[in-house]
Nucleic acid binder design. Structure first.
Length: 469
RNA sequence: GGCUCCAUCGUCUAAUGGUUUAGGACGCCACCCUUUCAAGGUGGCAAUAUGGGUUCGACUCCCAUUGGAGCUACCA
């Protein structure tokens, strides 16, 4: 069997969102489980939307997730270059060849004429479609115009031909060519459109499986027409369901679809992100199994991919993230927490704090919310206390704690429980007063353990401060 | 509007036409645990869009309706 070769082909017009990244994941998974090759190809054919920052971001995402590529930018390969902007001659040559074969034609229509045409067609209730105005030009006319006018090369879609194919995910699909426009293949700036470039490159790069989003399905006939005209074999096609935002429309930069990098910076772990993405459109058992990249390589399959679009649910991501945080070793968490802790934070202190907050964190960024008080004295004012005996609580706690020689949790709890009992207080009421005084919040990690980390001096100081508030 | 596709709890989904009072997970609610918040444990609420067929039997097959999405660029 021919070796499986798939590609991830982002365009550097922005930072890929979760949907695009999932496509990369699925492609990668396929190659790793079939000992195939994963190729990254940069589809930079749109100069207007080109964004110079995005290439780095795209590669950073792949590296962050651990989706290493066999061929592509930085690594190279024997089917390069892997930037479409560096392959223009290939597309131009192919476009000319298509013209020779009668499968494409030169078009000299101006954007203004096309726009006017579409407008008129729409007004008449017709489907906007190129009217083949330039198809009837004689060879001589074309040659003459080519010397003085800008032109594009358009695909000549066959008339009323049914294009049918089998999609590995979507099943059998057929579309009548009369529904398909004579697509521009080569733009007037000499750059190809997606439709030409994708066919040429997939063929030249020996791509065996095209796995991409379902938004491409309606342009498959265009690609098929090109493959047929050139006599090239068609790779297997698999169109992934879309990931929709909570408004149930396609995820896009428009509605603030974030990239993996954004989620990383918010404190999501790559394991959680990978696991979560895998279950978007694909299922395995209860869709809550914690699967690593290695696990996914073993169990992933195209068969369990849904046709239906799916909605991105951040709550599930949060859950996965919490699970993975809890699975981390304390020292691993300290490393991961680096971008989220105060700059001067001592590693030893962090190592003590982590066990207290590990089970409470959903995201790494929760650190400051949960453990900020270790590094910065809270602003405590009297209105925070909801128990009217709080002054009494604090005064007695203060004197009890002062007497402690060994500043450890059992000792602290021991003396405090004693004064609670002696005064007939409710345990919860007392500790809430203490909690607010020490941490400035109603919700904190275990407060006696926190006091141990804070140290005797600092703890007593905070109690004193709170009494003055 | 046209074309293509889709349709099970709020969300992700399971269920070779009979094993199903439609299963699980997230979320939500309640309870337990508990010095707060979490975590953990137990339980609960919650779905086959509608209408027709086919069949002894339909979540599963067919048709229609309704709803949704994608595409409809010299963007990808």
């Amino acid at each position: 069997m021919e070796k499986l070769r798939v590609r991830f082909a982002p365009s550097p017009t922005g930072v890929p969102h979760i949907g695009n990244t999932r496509t990369a994941l699925f492609n990668w998974l396929l190659t790793r489980q079939n000992k195939g090759q994963f190729i990254v190809r940069i589809e930079d054919t749109d100069r207007k939307r080109f964004n110079s920052q995005s290439l780095d971001k795209i590669l950073e995402i792949l590296k962050f997730l651990g989706l290493n590529w066999d061929e592509g930018p930085q690594t190279g390969g024997s089917y390069g270059p892997y930037f479409q902007s560096q392959r223009l001659d290939l597309y131009q040559k192919t476009a000319e060849e298509l013209v020779k074969k009668g499968a494409a034609y030169y078009c000299f229509c101006s954007p203004q004429r096309l726009e006017k045409l579409r407008k008129e067609q729409r007004a008449k209730g017709q489907i906007p479609r190129y009217d083949r105005h330039c198809l009837s030009l004689s060879k001589a006319e074309v040659e003459k115009k080519k010397r003085t006018e800008k032109y594009v090369i358009r695909l000549k879609m066959p008339d009323s031909k049914i294009f049918s194919w089998h999609d590995l995910i979507q099943g059998d699909i057929s579309i009548n060519s009369k529904e398909v426009d004579d697509q521009v293949l080569l733009k007037s700036d000499g750059f190809p459109t997606y439709h030409l470039a994708v066919v040429v490159d997939d063929h030249l790069m020996r791509i065996t499986h095209v796995v991409r989003g379902v938004e491409w399905i309606s342009s498959v006939p265009k690609h098929l027409a090109i493959y047929e005209a050139l006599g090239w074999p068609v790779p297997k096609l698999a169109h992934l369901p879309l990931i929709l935002g909570s408004d149930r429309t396609k995820l896009s930069k428009r509605h603030g679809a974030k990239s993996i990098l954004d989620y990383r910076d918010e404190g999501y772990l790559k394991e959680a992100l990978i696991n979560f993405m895998a279950y978007l459109g694909w299922s395995y058992r209860d869709n809550a199994q914690l699967l690593s990249l290695e696990d996914l390589v073993k169990v992933f399959n195209l068969k369990n991919i849904q046709k239906q679009n799916c909605v991105f649910d951040i709550q599930k991501l949060d859950w996965f993230n919490g699970q993975y945080i809890r699975m981390k070793l304390d020292k691993e968490l300290v490393e991961l927490l680096k971008p989220f802790v105060p700059q001067n934070a001592d590693k030893e202190i962090l190592l003590k704090i982590v066990p207290l907050i590990k089970e409470r964190m959903i995201k790494l960024s929760d650190f400051s919310k949960m453990a900020g008080f270790f590094f910065k004295r809270p602003n405590v004012n009297s209105s925070l206390f909801d128990n009217k005996n709080y002054q009494d609580h604090l005064k007695k706690a203060l004197s009890a704690l002062q007497s402690i020689e060994v500043w450890k949790e059992p000792e602290i709890t021991g003396v405090l429980m004693k004064i609670i009992k002696d005064n007939g207080w409710k345990t919860g009421d007392f500790f809430m007063s203490l909690r607010i005084a020490v941490a400035g919040s109603h919700q904190t990690p275990p407060i006696n353990d926190s006091a141990v980390i804070l140290g005797k001096e600092e703890t007593l100081l905070r109690l004193n401060e709170a009494l003055k508030a």
